[in-house]
């Protein structure tokens, strides 16, 4: 289990990384935390000519407040940094809760947000969070900088709209509802979830004014359950609309059968995780 031979280049800024990516036309890979890439190399599932180390690029490590209340988190920020960030915890408390589900401590200490987004694993937390938070992903390529909305970013399992020569610079988070619910069920603590759901609720005068529901591990990409969201707005959470939201989540997902759970079981779990997350978020919203 040793990687095939590759060249190594440490980029000192994003532009260098983009230039190196461009020069190798698809045969180069960026490495930051290496938590997904290294196993793939060791299994020889990938044989890149060049690894471009972006872990020393300072501009990728920022956590800062941008314009119009948006928060900008650099692609090189590690899961652990989010877990302990007080400012992010205040604005997006769901992030902290979700980070405790990202694998194990050692992996959270190394893995980066950009890596998780670029890898595009539908069972991972960051792609779902990006979708739930209506995030925009800032990328840089040879043709310049662009912003990609999360809903347009994840195209399939391990497949994103990043071009071969593009690097993620940051994730931009607009203000979001604070009341949250986040549940995953996994075979063991730290495993990829069999199913997971995140919910954000905003209330006005005791009624839901904004609802967001997203699912992970339940399809080729993370999934937003827009149907259910719209139906919750203007109401209290009650057993009828809760059940309807659970059904909507089950209908929205298209999970695969694998060693750990059948598609049928995962659909069932999609409903359960959605229901529990709704309960938790509603409990916070009305207290």
């Amino acid at each position: 289990m040793k990687p095939p031979p590759f060249e190594y280049f440490r980029a000192s800024n994003p532009e260098e990384a983009v230039a190196a990516l461009g020069a190798h036309g698809g045969n180069a890979k960026l490495i930051a935390g290496g938590q997904s890439l290294m196993p793939m190399l060791n299994f020889r599932l990938l044989e890149p000519e060049l690894l471009i180390d972006i872990s020393k690029i300072a501009s990728l490590k920022r956590i800062e407040k941008g314009s119009s209340g948006r928060w900008v988190i650099g692609a090189g920020v590690r899961h652990r940094d989010i877990l302990v960030s007080e400012v992010l915890g205040n604005s997006y408390p769901i992030l902290r809760a979700a980070m405790t589900h990202v694998a194990h401590v050692a992996i959270r200490n190394r893995g980066t947000i950009g890596g998780s987004l670029a890898h595009g694993d539908p069972a991972a937390e960051w792609p779902m969070l990006a979708l739930l938070l209506d995030a925009e992903i800032e990328v840089l390529g040879r043709s310049g900088q662009r912003m990609i909305e999360a809903k347009d970013f994840f195209l399939g399992a391990l497949h994103t709209s990043l071009s071969e020569d593009e690097i993620i610079l940051a994730i931009h988070l607009p203000p979001a509802p604070v009341a949250w619910g986040f549940f995953e069920t996994a075979r063991r603590a730290g495993d990829f979830a069999l199913a997971g759901a995140g919910v954000l609720l905003e209330t006005q005068n005791g009624k839901i004014s904004e609802a967001r529901i997203a699912l992970l591990g339940l399809g080729e990409t993370p999934i937003r359950v827009y149907d259910a969201e719209a139906k919750l707005e203007g109401e209290n959470l009650n057993s009828t609309n809760r059940a309807a939201a659970m059904e909507a989540a089950k209908a929205a997902c298209q999970p695969m059968t694998d060693l750990h759970a059948s598609a049928e079981f995962r659909v069932h779990l999609a409903g359960i995780m959605t229901g529990r997350s709704l309960d938790a978020a509603w409990g916070q919203a009305i207290c």
Partner: peptide
């Protein structure tokens, strides 16, 4: 006795 088996 996995969750899947118990579910079934």
């Amino acid at each position: 006795a996995t969750p899947e088996r118990l579910f079934r």
